[in-house]
Simulated scan of single mutants.
Amino acid sequence: MKYTVEIEIDKPIDRVIELFDNTDTMKQWMEGLQSVEHLSGTPGQPGAKLKLKFKMGSREFEMIETVTVRNLPDEFTGTYEANGVLNTVKNSFIKLSDTKTKYVTENEFQLKGFMKVMAFLMPGAFKKQSLKFMSAFKKFVESQN
């Protein structure tokens, strides 16, 4: 399953990148994120791995992020692995003006087992969740000086 989501952020591209590139602020905008643990590699660079722990309702799960491409603002790509899910996300940032930035994500999911059934029954849920995270990031960035 593949899809693209984009949103415009009312902040300069340099500020958007600065906040996107800061794992210390992820909990402030990523709903359900409980902790971020650096596992290996140079943080933010290709090959680096993070463990992300989430709690959504009564459900807890972990995800491993592996950075595969870092060429900001044009591309920051990573893989996100959890039970039955491999998600590759390409993030791109485009300067629209001195005060406005377009944030684009290209998502590709490879699913197994129950998650494959969920994607078949509710394909819009994945895109909706991506847009929810992007909207929360936009709100967070726009609230910062």
Rank of each mutant, 00 (worst) to 15 (best):
L121F: 05
E142G: 12
T23S: 03
M56G: 05
T77I: 05
F20T: 01
K53E: 10
A82K: 00
G113H: 01
S130A: 15
A48R: 02
M26Q: 05
M134D: 10
L33Q: 10
K138I: 04
I64G: 05
S40P: 15
K138Y: 07
R15N: 06
R15S: 09
G32P: 11
V117M: 04
F61K: 04
G78K: 01
K127Q: 15
K100A: 12
E6A: 15
I94F: 13
A48K: 00
V16P: 03
A48Q: 06
T25N: 13
V104C: 06
F109S: 02
P73I: 05
K139C: 02
S92E: 12
E65K: 09
V85P: 00
E6H: 11
W29V: 11
R15H: 08
T101G: 11
N107Q: 06
T25H: 06
E18I: 01
Q110W: 06
V89H: 02
G41I: 14
M26H: 04
F20K: 01
M115Y: 11
S130D: 10
Y103I: 05
R70C: 03
F54R: 01
L19A: 06
I94P: 00
N145E: 07
E81M: 14
K128W: 09
V117H: 01
A125N: 13
M1Q: 05
D21F: 08
S143Q: 03
A48W: 02
G47D: 12
A119Y: 00
G78R: 00
Q34P: 01
L96S: 09
Q34V: 15
P12V: 09
A125Q: 13
D14I: 10
N107Y: 05
K102I: 12
G113C: 07
I13E: 15
F20A: 02
V89E: 07
I17G: 04
V89F: 02
L86T: 14
P43D: 14
E65S: 13
D10F: 10
Y103V: 08
F76P: 03
M30E: 05
D98H: 12
R15K: 13
I7P: 15
K100V: 12
E37V: 09
Q110C: 02
L121E: 06
G44A: 08
F126D: 00
E81W: 05
K53V: 10
V89N: 03
G44D: 04
N71R: 14
Y80K: 04
L19Y: 04
I7C: 12
L19D: 03
I7W: 06
K138C: 07
K139S: 10
T105A: 03
L72Y: 08
M122L: 10
M122T: 14
P73E: 08
R70A: 15
L96P: 08
K49L: 11
I94L: 14
Q28V: 08
G41H: 00
M134K: 00
K100E: 15
M115I: 03
K90M: 09
L121Q: 11
A119K: 00
K102T: 14
L39S: 02
M56V: 15
L50S: 05
P46A: 02
F76S: 02
W29C: 11
S35N: 13
K11Y: 09
E6F: 12
D21M: 04
F114Y: 08
A136Y: 01
K127D: 09
